[in-house]
Each structure stands twice: as C-alpha cells, then as structure tokens.
Simulated scan of single mutants.
Amino acid sequence: MNLALFDFDGTITHKAMFADFIRFAVPRRRRILGTPLFAPMVVGYKLGLVSGNAIRSSVVSFGLRGARAEHVREMGRRFSDEVLSTVLRPIALERIRWHRERGDKVVVVSGALDIYLEYWCRTHGLDLICSRLEVVDSHLTGRYHGPQCVGAEKSRRVRETCTLQDFSTVYAYGDTEEDLDMLSMAHKKYYRWQELP
C-alpha cells in the first residue's frame, strides 16, 4: 500500500479558502467591525512583514471567539456543500480517485480549519490532519487547539499519525512554501501539479 498526502488550499482547490470561510461563517456586522482593524495586518502580510499564522490566529480570535461550536460546524457543513464544491480542481479529484482505486491511504494534510474540512473529507472518504479550533463548554474560544498545521508541523503530524515505513511509496502534493517540508518526506513529490526530482 502507498500513502498519498494532499495539501488542500490551492492544491485540491483553486485558491486558499480561509478568507472565504470567514466571510461565510462570521456575521456581517462583526466582519464590518473587523475590516479596519485588520487592514494594516493584511498590508503587512502582502509585504511579507506579517506571517500567515499571525493573521489567521488574529482573524479566528476576532471572528469566531464565543460562537457556538454546533452552529459553526453547521456553517462548515454548508460551506463544504455550497462553496467548496465550486472551487475543486478536476486534476486533484482525478488524482485522489486514482490513488483510492489503487488501494492507497489518502490523507488531506492542511492548515485549513477542521470546522469544514472534517465534513468534506468524511464525505469523500479521506483521512484528515489539519488545524483545529479549540472548543470549551460547547463554544469556540477563538484559539487554535495546538499549532496551526503548516510548514514543519505538517510533516510532524504525518509522522505522528502514519508509520511511513509501512508504505511502499509516499506521494505528496502541495502548492506553497508551507508544503515543502511535507513534500521532502515523499518519494514522489508534486509542487503545483508538477513532479519534482
């Protein structure tokens, strides 16, 4: 059996979906209040002065803190059905199908949020390793549960979850620098759908 590791945002989808989910799930009034607060951060991110981790943490804290977990999970299910289905790459779905037909273990390894990825992966019969939101007393705290699943954290969690020696060949698919550590674990690496040496 082989192991196939797929990044989600930009690899399975045409674009990163974090901002789209925030627009979908966070009430309009709260988003309007947050826009001027986050404008300098967004500029800093585009200039390379603010990390993706920092901006995502801040947006999650502002947008989702105190929300009922059950409500946000329902928004995640709707987001998966109504939005994700419109941005999937045919090449990615075909490759996932190819791996599954061969009997390979297919795992989505993503910095994206569990709140919608769990539903999407369950619907498609895929395993999932991703960033998780913290829930206390049935409400989101506005914090991540553990580190965001990006960069070296991706490969750390894969090793924690999968015994790599049990697989004949490890495939990995990604599209940004945050995926390179995961790709370095694989025998066959694909970056933006081009095979690397």
Rank of each mutant, 00 (worst) to 15 (best):
C162T: 05
L133R: 01
G174P: 04
I96D: 04
F62H: 13
H124V: 00
E153L: 11
K46A: 15
K154A: 06
V170N: 00
L49P: 07
R157S: 07
D137H: 08
L117D: 05
T163R: 14
K189V: 04
V108R: 00
G151A: 08
Y119T: 06
I96K: 04
D7N: 11
Y119L: 09
E160M: 12
A16M: 00
L93M: 15
H71V: 15
T86M: 06
D114L: 11
L33D: 11
Y173S: 06
E195V: 13
D179W: 03
G125R: 05
K105A: 07
K188A: 09
G111C: 09
L3T: 02
L64A: 07
M17D: 04
V135F: 10
G63C: 00
A4G: 11
M75I: 14
E82F: 08
E178N: 14
D7G: 12
V170G: 04
K154E: 02
M185F: 04
M1C: 01
E101M: 10
R192S: 10
T13P: 00
S110H: 07
Q148H: 10
A112W: 03
M75S: 14
Q148I: 14
R100K: 15
A67I: 08
H145M: 15
L49V: 08
V150L: 09
E160P: 05
H99R: 12
L5T: 02
D7E: 12
K188R: 15
V170Y: 01
K189Y: 05
S58P: 03
C149I: 03
G66S: 07
R157D: 06
G76Q: 01
R31P: 05
T35Q: 13
I115W: 06
A92C: 05
Y191D: 00
